[in-house]
Design a protein around this nucleic acid. Structure first.
Lengths: 253, 253
DNA sequence: CGTTATATTGAAGTATATCAATCCAGGTGG
DNA sequence: CCACCTGGATTGATATACTTCAATATAACG
């Protein structure tokens, strides 16, 4: 056996393939035929778990793979010229990260695990080859990237127009929706990121996040125990961030 | 000739094809072989110019095309639940817009011309078909989308971490770079958007934008005459926004 | 050439940041 | 097992950058 530069692979004793993965309905395999899932499966490398604080890829490092989160959570972040960290996203199971590296062949952000985290590594050149053969896979990649663009634009609206209360509420509801989508409780979950990381992401000071959270508790919108959080006033919170139906929005244009 | 629901097409007297278009080196045709450019060319519809204020597509409208700007400028924007407009981007010649509609089959933003503007309409289903036959075209689309994602992330950093001076300076330098890339002056150009639109985009009040601009004039970083602007202290401005070399950034991670 | 939108400038108000002081939880070592 | 330590979280007091309100000034436009 020859020595390589690549990290050791983690091979589960079970068949940890896309087929049997509980996330297949949310992740890239969505909308693929069984045989196509198998082909996708073959290019994916399941890596050994990252411990909290470990880096998956680093800003400036040459791009070669995108990653799907299997368990745990990661954050992506930039280092600004003044040396501060700016978090650009949190990634939960089934979500894809690293896509922003395609353009420059370099990751423009770093990715770090917020807790013990496992990911599937998808070498991009292989994915691109395969996408030429499987139109629905290509379409799926377009969709994931498109989704990312519109999500990021929503985030800009949040950062540019909303006040502290609305920012925190939007953040919690966004997490809620993501948990819900993959079958977990929409109203009771654990925040894997610190208050500081939330503040950083939302463009707020830690203290402000803390104050908003205690205020929400007093208003009985949420119940908090450290990182555990329960949304008890979901509709009230939705009203706060202005969850309007599409109709409502469109009529105002 | 049968009546159709589509808007009338504008056919230039000259052969206004991708081949002869001055933007081909920046726009989608980049990296395509001549014969492939012709195939791309055939699916593109050159539309008649939009007048200032006209809408190219509307938030909520069903998605079927992406657009490349040929001349002029557009803005994309969201209407928030409270009815305010939030501008999510400005688009200059050679830039592609509409990509965020792929995921939901609906445009999540509206696009409006800031001045007389011409665009090339690229029906997405055709583009997707063609991209299956031309790998370099597919790769190019991935790159454009990836680029958009990392640009938007930079924008988040700006909105989340920067003060008014840094925001305005970043905005001006960003425009400067875009003009430069397509052969125009990097230091002297015309702002096609109003102060209000700049403020909206940057998450600042109009008055703040105005004040920052006059301050920059007093500091002799810029010279302004209405919408005409000249950057006279380019390096100083770069210092202000912290244009760090990649090395500088990476060492701090 | 008047009328309306856009831009500028000043004064006052406010949301959020910053500074500072506990408080608390989780992990470590005696 | 408990005391200790360290980083995160909370809370209060103060500072400030930006917004908002208001009053011109200027440019755009029919």
């Amino acid at each position: 056996m020859s020595i390589t530069h690549t990290a050791p692979r983690f091979t589960s004793t079970l068949t940890s393939q896309c087929q049997s993965c509980s996330l297949s309905a949310l992740c890239l395999p969505i909308a693929l035929a069984d045989e196509d899932i198998n082909r996708l499966d073959q290019i994916i490398e399941r890596k050994k778990p990252l411990k909290k604080g470990e880096v998956l890829f680093r800003q400036g490092q040459s791009f070669d793979s995108v990653y799907a989160v299997r368990t745990g959570t990661l954050k992506t972040f930039n280092i600004t010229s003044s040396g501060e960290e700016q978090i650009t996203g949190f990634y939960c199971p089934s979500e894809l990260l690293g896509l922003s590296g395609i353009d420059g062949n370099v990751y423009p952000v770093s990715a770090k695990a917020l807790e013990t985290t496992t990911v599937c590594e998808i070498p991009f050149s292989h994915l691109e080859d395969l996408s030429a053969q499987i139109p629905s896979l290509k379409h799926q990649i377009f969709k994931v990237m498109s989704r990312k663009i519109s999500d990021d634009q929503q985030m800009m609206v949040l950062l540019g127009k909303k006040n502290a209360d609305e920012k925190v509420a939007s953040f919690l509801l966004n997490l809620s929706n993501r948990f819900k989508k993959r079958g977990y409780s929409a109203t009771s979950f654990r925040l894997s990121m610190s208050r500081g990381e939330i503040g950083n992401y939302l463009g707020l000071a830690v203290e402000t996040v803390s104050r908003v959270i205690t205020r929400f508790q007093k208003n009985e919108m949420i119940e908090v125990d450290g990182k555990e959080i329960a949304i008890v006033g979901l509709t009230e919170m939705q009203k706060l961030v202005g969850v309007a139906s599409d109709c409502d929005k469109i009529k105002n244009i």
